[in-house]
Design a protein around this nucleic acid. Structure first.
Lengths: 236, 236
DNA sequence: CCAAAAGTGTTAGTGGTACACCCATGA
DNA sequence: TCATGGGTGTACCACTAACACTTTTGG
């Protein structure tokens, strides 16, 4: 039995995949292989299949492109204007994903002609993908100010200067390192390691890693990672 | 031209409509008039039509039921598991709406056998509508702690004790009225009127109204309407 | 020995919370 | 006059932000 006299629509998920290279935020884009807008840049996306939920579709699509599973992803608002895709109406469910850019490098699947673009100089993108990216960035900026989601972008061991650079990059601002260190450590989300990372200074910076216990328990707590006046308005 | 070999799906919006009666939060539910689960309670919903966006569909559906337009609405996460509707797969885009319960009363459309239910004693609902309501409530609790969205639930003129009761109801807690007053007034979102509301006390409480200018400008600012430890975790 | 990055403490101000009494008035 | 709800101020504490010098070490 079916609902009668109703229009059925294509539903796609589009993945807004962010990475961080130590200095800048990058967005992973592919070159669309088919018309219209062939060869323009696009988010990686795909239609929801009969057997899968939207979350599953997003994971599948992310894995197809990057080889990565179990990545932090979050759905944002649907894009649904009837004319957004000129071929046929498609409802898009965009997902924001944060991945460790280093992990991706080793598993790249080049079938899609994917490329990292600095978020400060994005190319023209098809349809309303630019809007999706803007929305995703806003969401990220808002959420990262209160929740430790950026930690997902880092390798297992990382230094506080690296972490700080991530926050500075996202908000395009400078943060006082003494205040930042104090805030981050006071969350008890991190464990200090004994080794140092000497790759970026002679003195070396201590490695930290996530304290998995505390991280899961306190993930939804509300923190204050960055000064209030750096949180952009017009968000979520 | 069309995308070939892809499955098209029904896409519906479901409206999670909250009201506040001065003491409790209410959810507006309808009695489903058709099988399956005929006569069980349900959110008001409807399929997205070919000519409309999801936002438009949500407004249309809200207006059908309540007669109200230009109401605060916000989309929350899509529900998309393949089996959620036993008749046929439907992707649901839930919307949270906040309406002034008094305005609704005068415009009720009884075709749908609608009824307000206290959110503390909801009836059994069809499909995953209960989950939608939970998600919507969480979202509301989180957002209302930082943004003045609850103001949408009130009539044009309202008193501070009324406003406080709304916050107390949402978080099921008591708030110190001195602190609450100070916080709310410090936002500069309100204008004090000269009249008093004498309906709930002999002394009377001053009416306030939204300072439209400031309200629109500062809507996205981050406030602190309720104590941190009352904000539930596991939110958004 | 020096350049370059890491690490660390203090202070002043702001904002949050806890707390209790007087005010106005209709009945 | 009294019961009821409305309105107001203060003091402590915690958090924030601003700020500068010392440490380490590879070259």
């Amino acid at each position: 039995m079916k609902y009668s006299n109703q229009t059925r629509l294509l539903v796609a998920v589009d993945c807004v995949i962010f990475g961080f290279d130590g200095a800048d935020y990058k967005l992973l884009l592919i070159q669309r292989g088919f018309a219209p807008e062939k060869e323009k840049w696009s988010l990686m996306g795909g239609f929801i299949q009969p057997s899968e939920s939207a979350d599953e579709a997003a994971s599948r699509i992310l894995e197809q492109l990057t080889g990565l599973k179990e990545v932090y992803m979050e759905q944002i608002q649907a894009f649904s204007t009837p004319e957004r895709d000129p071929i046929e109406r498609v409802i898009a469910l965009p997902y924001v994903a944060l991945i460790d850019i280093e992990k991706y490098k080793t598993q790249i699947n080049d079938d899609f002609h994917a490329r990292w673009y600095n978020i400060k100089s994005l190319p023209n993108m098809i349809f309303d993908h630019k809007e999706m990216v803007e929305l995703a960035l806003n969401k990220l900026r808002y959420k990262a100010a209160f929740h430790p989601i950026l930690f997902e972008l880092l390798p297992e061991k990382f230094t506080l200067p690296q972490l700080q650079a991530m926050y500075e990059g996202l908000y395009d601002t400078k943060i006082d390192k003494r205040n930042f260190t104090r805030k981050v450590l006071s969350t008890n989300l991190l464990k200090k390691e004994n080794e140092k990372d000497k790759s970026s200074s002679k003195k070396g910076a201590y490695y930290y890693s996530l304290d998995e216990e505390h991280y899961k328990e306190n993930f939804t707590n509300i923190h204050n990672f960055i000064p209030r006046n750096e949180i952009p308005v017009g968000n979520e």
